[in-house]
């Protein structure tokens, strides 16, 4: 599904060049649950942003489902994010003025689906995360766990192949974290590829494969036998 060849990402900070990713190679197959671990500054978020087409690499090739997307323009990348990728963020990133249903609707709005179709898909997604009865609540009327579930619903509403979760439990207590991880696990068993970025060891354990990064390089990449 994902093939990354010698990807480098440089940031220029004043006079210094910061190498966030240094010739990284990685490939991820469809249906995998990959946890990426590393301390802050290790390059794990940068790698995820590039995989999620939010950021473009300085050099190297990125094949997404056998298409070289290194030369995609911003509109093509937007469409790819819209159709094939769902994001889950640490701080949920829900739009405060919209209620739960409208937030889940958002990707479907941009893909141009009609009202009937998108209401159906969004309601299904909300049902999947167990928040059907909270569809009219605004984010500030929901608990942190509920907000994260809404954002999961938003990520899966468009039936993407890949879900990227950037520290999805970082802002939640341990009990709610378990809930969220269970939902991600279920999504994975339904065939959705999941890439999870975390620095918590026990959260990473949900992955079937754990990649460890340090200083812009992958230092360890192995199957997780315990999962």
């Amino acid at each position: 599904m994902i093939n990354i060849n010698a990807i480098t990402k440089e940031y220029i900070m004043g006079d210094n060049k910061l190498l966030a990713l240094n010739e990284v190679d990685v490939s991820i197959k469809e249906g995998e649950f990959v946890s990426i671990m590393g301390s802050s500054g290790s390059g794990k978020s940068t790698l995820m942003n590039i995989i999620g087409c939010l950021d473009v690499p300085t050099s190297g090739d990125y094949f997404f489902r056998n298409k070289n997307i290194s030369n995609y323009n911003s509109n093509m990348l937007a469409e790819l994010r819209n159709k094939d990728i769902g994001f889950i963020f640490q701080n949920f990133n829900l739009l405060p003025r919209l209620n739960a249903l409208e937030n889940v609707n958002l990707p479907l709005l941009y893909s141009g689906k009609n009202v009937k179709e998108r209401t159906k898909l969004s309601m299904e997604a909300l049902e999947n995360v167990g928040l059907k009865d909270r569809k009219d609540h605004k984010p500030n009327q929901l608990s942190g766990g509920q907000q994260q579930r809404v954002s999961i619903a938003r990520a899966i509403a468009g039936n993407p192949k890949l879900i990227l979760a950037d520290e999805p439990t970082g802002a939640l207590d341990s009990y709610t974290s378990l809930e969220i991880m269970k939902i991600l696990n279920d999504l994975n068993s339904n065939g959705i590829t999941i890439i999870l970025v975390t620095h918590e060891k026990d959260i990473a354990q949900y992955g079937s494969r754990i990649i460890k990064m340090k200083d812009g390089k992958i230092i360890e990449d192995k199957k997780n036998v315990s999962s």
Binding site: G52, L54, S74, N75, A78, E79, R81, N82, K83, F87, N93, L94, L95, L106, P107, Y110, S111, R154, G158
Partner: peptide, 16 residues
């Protein structure tokens, strides 16, 4: 700005 980023992450194009 952040909200614009969220919209872009779920597929908003420049035109949108």
């Amino acid at each position: 700005t952040k909200e614009i980023g969220v919209c872009m992450s779920v597929g908003a194009k420049k035109r949108d």
